[in-house]
Structure formats: structure tokens, C-alpha cells
Computed example of a mutant assay.
Amino acid sequence: MDFSKYTHYTFEDFLNDDAFLSFVVEQNVSDVLAWEKFKAAHPHKSKIALAAFDTISTYRQQKVFSNEQAQQSLFEKISGSITAGEPKIKKLSFSPFFRVAAVFAVVLLSAVLYFTLLSKDAVKTDYGMIKTIVLPDGSEVTLNGNSKISYAANFDDGPREVWIDGEALFRVKHINIDTNHIRPAEKFIVHCGDLNIEVLGTTFNVKSRHEKTSVGLLTGKIRVDYDDVNKRRMQFVMKPGDLVKHTEESNLVHQKIVNPQRLTAWIKRQLVFQNASLEEMIGVLQDDLGYEVVLSDKKLGELTVEGEINVVSVKDLLQILSATLHLNIKTYNKKITITK
């Protein structure tokens, strides 16, 4: 069994992976040897992997009963731990269904406890909201509207890992001493969709929405790990000015950008577009600012405005679109209707 794909798994990912579930249940000799090598090679992931392993093992042991007497014995133990110290009023008789349900509830509680012990702090922004947070290592992350970041509450036990859904600007603190010998705790890894970004100390912008991810590098150097269309794990090292785009259905697309600072114009609440289609601009209005945009014809989304647009308000953007693309645009509260 190949455990290499589990290097970026969360606790929930392990529990939802059929191959991992089968391994825990069956534990073939060859798989166990590979499992031990995986834990030795990835000590930062061992705690989460072992927690998932133990949770699955506990569930399997507690939900299977060889006979009614064993089931009754286990249920009485659970009931006794819950009611210890309380006066007994009446002994209740439960059907086998409720006994199994009670056992499952205990197992579920143990899973929750495991997850709590390995809990991640999370920050979410509303539409149109921009917020900067400081991570436990001193790195800064600025979130765009309608974005969420979660990260380990403690960066002491392994690499610095964060998970992003939406858009964010990262300013990563440089903590490694020797770049040729990087310890696990010195790594900084960003998870977004099925793409992972590994950095040491740098500034980059990540946008991950609708199963599409784009990464723009402003300063420093980062490595992007991703799956190509044939599900092979690939790597790409980015330099300042690089922009990469990736989806599950396509290979990594790389391009150079003249002015990387344009990627972070949203921090100043600017709406900046370069040779953008109407569909791209609508995406920003909906995803970042929470507008509902209705097109009378989907083909309108293919219209493109050549050159650069740089405005500070939605009203100014709509005026430009109306004039340059000859569109009829009406707004009502947070709903925008566009017709030809």
C-alpha cells in the first residue's frame, strides 16, 4: 500500500479514506511495514495519522459483537460510567438498536475528543471584509472577503500548516537557519484544494475558489506540489513574478506577470483587472463582495475589456462596463442585472 498520498491529509481526510479504513481493519503485513516507514519518514503527520488509526480501531472494536451477552455487558459498562454516583430511580430496558446507538455515540464522542486535541484555530471573513491575522509563529495572513483560514493552534510539534479557502496574502516569517538542512518545524505549508504550497520565508497571494487555485509569488521562493491530469504528484518551484493556475481537470499553467503587486490590490479595496472577461469580473463581485449577478445571456460573460481597469468602487466598475461593452446594467441592493 502506498502511503505517500497521506502527507497532506487532515484527521477528517483519514477517516473518510476507504483505502486507509481497509488498512486499519485488515492490517496486512506488507501494509504494516509500509505504515511504519511512513510514520518514520513523516513524524509531523504521525500524531494525526495515529489519532485516526486509533479512532477507527476503537469504532471497529466497539460496534462488532459476537453475541448478545457481550453486547449487553458492554452496554452496561457504558451505562454505569454515565450514571455513576447518581441515585437509581428505574431500570430501563433498551432494544438492541438503542444499545448499538449508545455505543456509536460514545465512539463519536471519542472521535470529537481526538479532533479537539488536534484542533485548529479558524478565522472567517464576511463578504467585503478584509482582515489581517498573526499566526503563532509571527507570520501574517490577510484574508479577502468570504474567505476562511484554519491552522494548528500550536506550531511547536511539526511544520507550520494552514488551510485556505478563498483568497489570502501570506507574509511568512523566516525561521530556518540552514536552507540546505530544513527541519520539519521550520517548514511552512499551505493547503488549498489538492494543491500544496511549501515555503520558507516569502510573500505570495493565494486564491482558491470553485475547485480552481491560483498562486502569485511577490518575493522569495516557494514550491508547489500538485496532481497532474494523470494523478501523478508533481512539483514546480516558483520565483518572484510567477503566477500558476491549477484545477483538478487540467495541468498546471504557468505565466509571468509584469507587476505582481497587482495581485494584492484587493487589500487596498481596489478593483484591478487586466484584459479581463466579464465573467472574471463577475466572479470577484460574487465571491469577494457578495453580489448576485444575473446575465440575460451567458455569452455576455465572454466579453472582454482590453487594457487595465483600476477603480475603488463597484459603481465605477459598472459604469466602465456599461460604456465600453455597451451593456444595460441595473442594480438593486446587492443584485446586479446585465442585459445587452
Rank of each mutant, 00 (worst) to 15 (best):
H210F: 11
E302G: 04
E292I: 11
G128M: 08
L321A: 00
K298P: 11
L252N: 08
K245G: 08
D17Q: 09
F273K: 03
S147R: 02
D17S: 06
F273I: 10
A101Y: 09
V229A: 07
T203F: 04
L317R: 01
T10W: 11
D121M: 07
V25A: 12
K298A: 10
G283V: 06
Q27V: 09
D225W: 13
T125A: 05
F53E: 01
S81D: 12
K256P: 13
V206K: 00
F98D: 13
T116C: 00
H44F: 13
S73H: 12
Y114G: 08
I78A: 12
G283C: 14
F98G: 08
R60Q: 12
E292M: 10
K77F: 09
V305I: 14
K221Q: 13
E308M: 12
V215W: 03
L195Y: 03
N67D: 15
E279Q: 03
G166W: 04
N230W: 12
D165F: 04
L200R: 03
N275R: 04
T55F: 05
P260N: 06
V103F: 01
S110Q: 11
V123I: 09
D157A: 12
S296A: 14
L21M: 05
V199Y: 01
L278I: 08
K330Q: 14
F170M: 02
N180Y: 03
R223V: 14
D2W: 03
P96S: 13
Y9K: 06
A153Q: 15
N180P: 03
F97W: 04
L217G: 00
F236K: 15
F38T: 06
A51N: 06
T202M: 04
S22K: 11
L74M: 10
T203G: 04
F38W: 15
Q274K: 14
M281K: 01
D227K: 11
M129E: 15
M129A: 14
T142L: 14
G220V: 09
G241A: 13
I309P: 00
Y226K: 00
F97E: 13
K88P: 07
N230Q: 15
F20M: 09
D287L: 10
L317C: 02
R183Q: 14
L327G: 06
A122I: 10
W163T: 02
T58E: 14
R60W: 08
H246M: 03
L74S: 10
L300D: 01
V106W: 11
V237A: 13
Q71V: 06
K39D: 07
E86G: 10
D137M: 05
V237Q: 09
L15P: 08
S139E: 07
Y332R: 14
F155D: 13
I336L: 07
V107N: 05
E161V: 15
W266N: 06
L300N: 01
G158T: 11
K315A: 15
F188V: 04
H326I: 03
T247A: 10
Y332S: 14
M234C: 12
N333E: 13
I320H: 00
A168H: 02
